[in-house]
């Protein structure tokens, strides 16, 4: 067996051990070493050279990047997630004929969709979605993300929140928590326009706070313009334009003179 491949396999075994121990710092360290080693394989994207070890190399590399993606979620690092996912993506898109599909493929793709949703990158969300074949949409993980997007768009926010209890994969919890925050901001924005006032207990329930203090703090930080009095939250409405009683004389005169001038030119 190729010595480089042996080295990577051994290092990866150590990485997995650390990963199982949940020793994230060691994992991150080993991962960067692994990534450097991977650059020496000519069979990996983008060159895709046909080497005798291509299948093993590709499979190992894909496995490493899959772990990298999940690790970035554990470390709650969204930038690293994006980087690792971009490196992983060619293995899913362009290696179909060479290595068998990975069982982790759909959970990770679904995770990426969820990330785009959390970051409110809806255009990219749909671009990614178009890449998926029809049968992928049946997959539980992908479906989860797609339904979330729909509920989010419709405004059925409590459906988004109940979806948190039904996550298809444990890694999804991190993004679901972030999503809850995005949803809260959305709800606050909608309530402001939709209601004249809300009682404190209703508002607390609607914004998913467990205590009045949390609600007060949220209002103070995010929406200082709201009024809290008599046990209710009053939203400041933008005053609607009053029907105009006066005729704006000057503009009307200029307009009419303009018409007269133009008409004269025609006739």
């Amino acid at each position: 067996m190729d010595p480089k491949l042996v080295e990577v396999t051994q290092l990866f075994a150590r990485f997995k051990a650390a990963y199982a121990r949940n020793d994230l710092d060691v994992c991150a360290n080993l991962l960067s070493q692994l990534k450097v080693l991977l650059t020496k394989f000519p069979s990996l994207p983008p060159s895709f050279q046909q080497t005798p070890n291509a299948v093993e190399e590709l499979t190992t590399a894909r496995d490493i990047y899959e772990h990298a993606v999940v690790l970035s979620v554990k470390m709650e690092d969204q930038d690293a997630f994006e980087r690792d996912f971009c490196q992983l993506k060619p293995y899913y898109m362009d290696t179909c004929g060479i290595i068998p599909p990975s069982p982790e493929e759909y959970p990770i793709l679904g995770l990426n969709l969820l990330r785009l949703l959390v970051q409110n990158r809806i255009a990219e969300f749909h671009t990614e979605l178009e890449l998926l074949p029809a049968k992928a949409l049946e997959n539980l993980c992908i479906k989860h993300a797609v339904e979330l997007e729909q509920s989010f768009m419709e405004g059925a926010y409590n459906r988004v929140l109940t979806a948190r209890q039904a996550v298809p994969h444990e890694t999804y919890v991190y993004f679901m928590d972030l999503l809850a925050k995005t949803v809260r901001d959305e709800i606050a924005g909608c309530s402001e326009k939709g209601y004249d006032f809300l009682s404190i207990s209703d508002a607390k329930q609607m914004f998913m706070f467990s205590s009045d203090q949390e609600l007060q703090q949220y209002i103070a930080e995010e929406h200082p313009e709201w009024d809290v009095k008599n046990g209710s939250v009053f939203f400041q409405k933008v005053k609607e334009s009053q029907p105009c009683k006066e005729i704006p004389a000057a503009p009307v005169i200029t307009q009419t003179l303009g018409y007269a001038r133009e008409l004269e030119r025609i006739v």
């Binding site: 709800i187 924005g189 939709g194």
Partner: peptide, 23 residues
């Protein structure tokens, strides 16, 4: 609850002109 949040989002997006009375 779904209807309520859907209505409030529609109000915010300017699709309808209405208010909700929660109580």
């Amino acid at each position: 609850a779904d209807a309520e949040s859907i209505v409030s989002k529609a109000i915010r997006d300017g699709a309808i002109d209405a208010t909700i009375d929660h109580s």
